[in-house]
Simulated scan of single mutants.
Amino acid sequence: MNPKLALKWLFWRYQKSQLGAIGEYSNVSILADIRGDKKNISLGNNVTICKYTTLEVDPSNNDKSKIIIGDNTLISSFAILRTYGGTIQIGNSSFVNSFSVLYGHGDLIIGNGCLIGPQVTIVPVNYGLQDRNIPFRQQTPTLKGIIIEDDVWIGAGVTILDGCTIGKGSVIGAGAVVTKNVEPYSIVGGIPAKKIRMRE
């Protein structure tokens, strides 16, 4: 075997061995960027982590900072998952498309069978802005968290902000900015997102 390929293969094996759990038939690309407290990353069975994906667990909060990905879920190339002290949990048979950014500050819970389009940003934190004499990063943030229930389809370029629950079976139209809860089986779109109609 080519020495460079052998070295890459050894590094890949080492990186996989550092994970907290990895199920049967799961595939982590040798080009995935896995950082931080790797033992707090758990992958179910038949999970695919594509090349150039970033999984980063903040080591400053070991008890809470985790990435948990369920069975048969695929995280596509160039997606970024960063915990920032919280938990990112993705259920079974879900899909995160390329260039999406998922943060975990106040906890992000994604259910089963969810489709997350490309360039989606999900941010379970909001910086304080009450005192203009204090820089944003020094003010107390909200950390309400975000819950995305089962069988949700999130279109390309959507932004979901802290404190939202996205109800089961709902659809978020491309480019929407979600600032409040979305009821189950509804279709929403726009900035800010508003209900267009219910799914029949």
Rank of each mutant, 00 (worst) to 15 (best):
S77C: 12
K168H: 14
S76Y: 15
C164K: 00
V152K: 02
G145H: 00
G111H: 04
I160A: 09
Q138S: 11
Y103E: 10
G155V: 02
N72A: 14
P124Y: 03
K144Q: 10
G163N: 04
D151L: 00
V152T: 09
D131K: 01
G113N: 10
T87H: 13
S98Y: 15
N112M: 14
G113K: 06
H105G: 01
G167V: 04
R132T: 14
Q138N: 14
D63F: 11
S60H: 11
P124S: 06
I69R: 09
V96F: 11
I67F: 01
S60F: 15
S100R: 04
Q130Y: 15
V158E: 01
S65E: 06
I88T: 08
K168F: 12
P118L: 01
Y84G: 02
V123T: 12
C164R: 05
I88W: 00
T165C: 03
I166A: 04
G169M: 00
S93E: 15
Q130W: 11
V101D: 10
G104S: 02
L129V: 15
P135W: 01
I160P: 00
L102N: 07
Q130P: 08
I75C: 14
G111A: 08
D107L: 02
T142D: 04
A156M: 15
Q138A: 12
P118K: 06
I109M: 09
H105A: 07
G104T: 01
F136W: 00
I147F: 13
T142H: 01
I88G: 10
G128R: 04
G155N: 00
S100Y: 02
L102C: 03
F99Q: 05
L115S: 07
T159D: 00
L74T: 14
P135V: 08
T140W: 03
F136M: 04
L161R: 03
V152A: 00
S94P: 10
T140A: 00
P141N: 03
N133G: 06
G113L: 03
S65F: 08
K144G: 10
